[in-house]
Amino acid sequence: MTIKAVIFDLDGVIVSTDQYHFEAWSKISEEEGILFNETINHQLRGVSRMESLDIILQRATKTYSDEEKLQLAEKKNEYYRQSLHHLSPSDLLPGVEYTLKTLKQNNIKIAIGSSSKNTPTILKQIGLDKEFDAIADGNDITRSKPDPEVFLLAATRLDIVPEECLVVEDALAGVEAAIAGKMNVAAVGETLRSSDADYYLESVDELLELVL
């Protein structure tokens, strides 16, 4: 396996903002009188904001118009964005800083491939906004994971063919997206051990054994 670039999902791989998402969706659900819990929240990992909202609204007792959905999604995002101001470099997940530094020292290109439209804000808060060779996020794409669009865009911006990219993901939709993009994929976390990933990592720094 020849790997010339590593494309990282952001949330759950570089930093965890899961709790902030959960709290924002919980607030929206409570306001609308809709059941929401950790089990439902798990279904939202790796999918877009509007798709997440559709999953939540499946349990609603009323029908929402497209305009009402957009308003709810924007309100959720505002709750979420307010909480992002609490993020700092100390919130980087274990092994991330060392991994990024080592990859760069070994001339392996690094990129972010995230469905989140808040990617620029998050990267700035955790001090990594200037660290990556390319960034592709929810502001650049029209199809979220499991469509491979975001990863293929990242590879294009890196000028590396998909087959020479390794994607690091913590969500099933992301693993499926990488596979659809003909990329190698490493899944982080116990929950993905039953997926079709090529590799399974306990922590991000384990990928160094794969590519160096």
Rank of each mutant, 00 (worst) to 15 (best):
T2I: 15
I3S: 08
A5H: 11
A5G: 12
F8I: 13
V13I: 13
S16L: 07
S16M: 07
S16K: 11
S16H: 07
S16V: 04
T17N: 03
Q19D: 11
H21Y: 04
E23W: 01
A24Q: 06
E31F: 09
E31T: 14
E32K: 11
E32I: 08
G33H: 07
I34Q: 14
I34T: 13
L35Y: 14
E38Y: 10
T39R: 14
N41I: 10
H42P: 00
R45P: 02
G46H: 05
S48T: 12
R49F: 11
R49Q: 12
L53A: 15
R59D: 04
T61V: 13
T63P: 02
Y64T: 03
E68R: 06
K69N: 11
K69M: 04
L72I: 09
L72C: 03
L72W: 07
L72V: 03
E78G: 00
Y79F: 09
Y79I: 06
S83I: 01
L84H: 03
H85Y: 01
H85D: 00
H86A: 08
S88C: 01
S88R: 05
P89A: 00
D91S: 12
D91N: 15
L93P: 02
G95E: 12
T99Q: 04
T102I: 11
T102R: 08
K104F: 07
I108H: 11
I110C: 10
A111L: 09
A111I: 05
A111R: 08
G113E: 00
S114T: 00
S114Q: 01
S115D: 04
K117S: 00
N118Y: 05
T119S: 00
P120I: 01
Q125D: 01
E131W: 09
A134R: 02
I135L: 11
A136L: 11
D137M: 05
N139T: 13
N139G: 13
D140V: 01
D140M: 14
I141C: 10
T142F: 05
R143Q: 15
R143G: 00
S144T: 14
P146G: 09
D147V: 12
E149W: 10
F151H: 05
A154Y: 04
A155N: 10
R157N: 08
R157G: 08
I160R: 09
V161C: 02
V161H: 11
E163C: 02
E164Y: 07
E164R: 04
C165E: 05
C165Y: 03
V168D: 02
A171C: 03
A171T: 03
G174D: 02
E176L: 05
E176C: 04
I179V: 07
K182Y: 03
M183I: 08
M183H: 02
M183F: 01
N184Y: 05
V185Q: 01
A187V: 01
V188A: 03
G189M: 06
E190G: 03
E190Q: 12
T191E: 08
L192Y: 05
R193L: 08
R193P: 01
Y199L: 01
Y199F: 15
E202L: 10
E202F: 06
S203M: 10
V204T: 15
V204N: 13
D205S: 14
E206V: 06
L207M: 13
L208A: 09
L210N: 10
L210Y: 11
L210G: 09
V211L: 14
